[in-house]
Design a protein around this nucleic acid. Structure first.
Length: 447
RNA sequence: GGCUCUAUCGUCUAGUGGUUAGGACGAAAGCUUCUCAAGCUUUAAACCGGAGUUCGAUUCUCCGUAGAGUCACCA
């Protein structure tokens, strides 16, 4: 039994996006499942377009997602290896120096071309079955600009050979490159690896996913407050499934259950709503400390100050905040729009707001609040919990009409049309602030 | 256009020569504390079309159609 070696081979000409993540994930899963090796190889043979910042972004993203590699290579460090094979192939007569007439600026007058044997190449794809191509149409393709500048197809084949890659798992945009790579492989005398081509990830309009469709870099999802577990789970289930109805799949389960033949053959449309749903699920599994950190990070300066000075209130707010978001950056928006202010500061509002839709008489509303105040007064400060508050007010509210009591009460506490329920709110604010706010509402109603 | 690949609810998908074609996201309705959110329950929602094989095709074959990828001295 030979060792399984897979690789992820991005070119640093762009950021790490969702589609690449899936390719990396599947390669990684396959290696881990088989106790094999996962190689990360930066394909930077295009000196013009390759940028260090993109390489950093890719490394950063993979690291954050936990897709750790066992070996790392950069093609630009491997020139002598490509050169050696180039010379070798020339000696064998498989490659020749070709005189050219440059058609565009930058083109060479002499390049290295591969002597195409012009035959039909058939290969097996673990995800799709057998595929064959007639390579005649390719002609004698260029494999290097010169001995120091190999082109993609050549460098890939040499590297996969030299690194002992056994399984090539990559996007199906590379499927039509495979025959020519096999040709080079055969000239090199390299064994043929096992191929598995993954379908593309598409935008909602079925076109190729791009930035304008909301396809962000993985690092941007991180900044938006998505969790790596959610991204991995989401991406894994686009084009693969564990063989049952499970939607939440842990990494450990994926490693156990992953299988190449189960990979979907058609492209999958990126569905941000499902990602959000998954992210919300994983957010709920976070500890209080982690939640507090993520939230605190995204509060306004004022709110941060309040939170620091009122740790009890802040910690009680956390479950409420979490309930309303599916990714953490939403906290920023909510915080900036003043959504959390009433937890710390007595709200200001128009008196009409405190009136329930079915009970518009301010005098009656005020009387009901007075009764609420009276009922609340019996509760000891130390036992001011949602349960005790509810018990105190509930019967009375039910008797006279819940909305006519609870709406003004809740509005007095929050000053908002929408908010958590009055019992939770009151318990967070504490007895003193609750009474103060209700008294203020009564005054306002009678003014 | 040539070549290659693909085709089940709006989306991600399960599944089978005979099924009420299953699940999830989203949507709608209801319930649960007045509002919001969450949660729970329920509902609507699909086998691209046409031939053929067959007692019977969503499933197998062929032909259409549609979509995608690819055709560089990019990767």
């Amino acid at each position: 039994m030979t060792e399984v070696i897979t690789r992820f081979a991005p070119s640093p000409t762009g950021v790490l996006h969702i589609g690449s993540v899936r390719t990396a994930l599947y390669s990684w899963l396959y290696a881990r499942q088989n106790n094999g090796k996962f190689i990360l190889r930066i394909e930077d043979t295009d000196k013009e377009r390759s940028k260090k910042e993109f390489e950093d972004n890719i490394l950063d993203g993979l690291n954050w997602l936990g897709l750790n590699h066992d070996e790392f290579y950069r093609q630009s460090d491997r020139s002598p290896i490509y050169k050696k094979h180039l010379i070798d192939l020339i000696a064998k007569g498989a490659v020749y120096l070709s005189k050219e007439e440059p058609k565009e600026p930058g083109e060479r007058a002499e390049v290295l071309r591969f002597k195409n044997p012009n035959r039909v190449v058939t290969f097996h794809d673990e995800a799709r079955g057998d595929i064959s191509f007639d390579t005649t149409e390719l002609g004698d393709f260029v494999i290097a600009k010169d001995f120091e500048s190999p082109l993609y197809h050549f460098a890939v084949v040499v590297d996969d050979f030299e690194m002992g890659v056994t399984h090539i798992i990559r996007g199906d945009d590379a499927i039509s490159n495979t025959p020519r790579q096999i040709l080079i492989q055969e000239a090199l005398g390299a064994p043929r690896p096992i191929y598995a081509h993954l379908p593309m990830i598409l935008a909602p309009d079925k076109s190729k996913l791009s930035k304008r469709h909301g396809a962000l870099a993985v690092t941007e999802y991180r900044e938006e407050g998505y969790l790596p577990e959610a991204i991995i789970n989401f991406v894994a289930l686009m084009g693969w499934n564990p063989g049952n109805d499970q939607e939440i799949v842990s990494i450990a389960e994926m490693i156990k259950l992953f299988s190449l033949p189960k990979i979907q053959k058609s492209g999958a449309v990126f569905n941000i709503d499902k990602l959000k749903w998954l992210n919300k699920f994983y957010i709920k599994t976070l500890t209080q400390e982690k939640l507090a950190n993520e939230i605190l990070l995204r509060l306004t300066e004022t709110l941060k100050e309040y939170a620091k000075n009122n740790p009890m209130i802040f910690s009680k707010m956390i479950p409420i905040i979490v309930e309303h978001i599916s990714f953490f950056e939403e906290v920023s928006t909510l915080a900036e729009s003043g959504e959390y202010d009433y937890f710390f500061v007595d709200p200001m509002y128009e008196r009409e707001g405190a009136l329930w839709k079915d009970e518009k008489d301010p005098i009656i509303a005020s009387q009901k609040l007075k009764k609420v105040l009276f009922l609340l007064n019996d509760i000891d400060d130390a036992f001011f919990t949602p349960e005790t508050i509810k018990t105190a007010v509930w019967n009375y509210a039910t008797e006279v009409g819940r909305g006519s009591v609870l709406w003004p009460m809740r509005f007095a506490l929050s000053g908002r049309e929408k908010s958590p329920d009055p019992f939770t709110l009151a318990s967070i604010l504490g007895k003193e602030a609750t009474i103060r706010r209700i008294e203020y509402a009564m005054k306002l109603l009678l003014s």
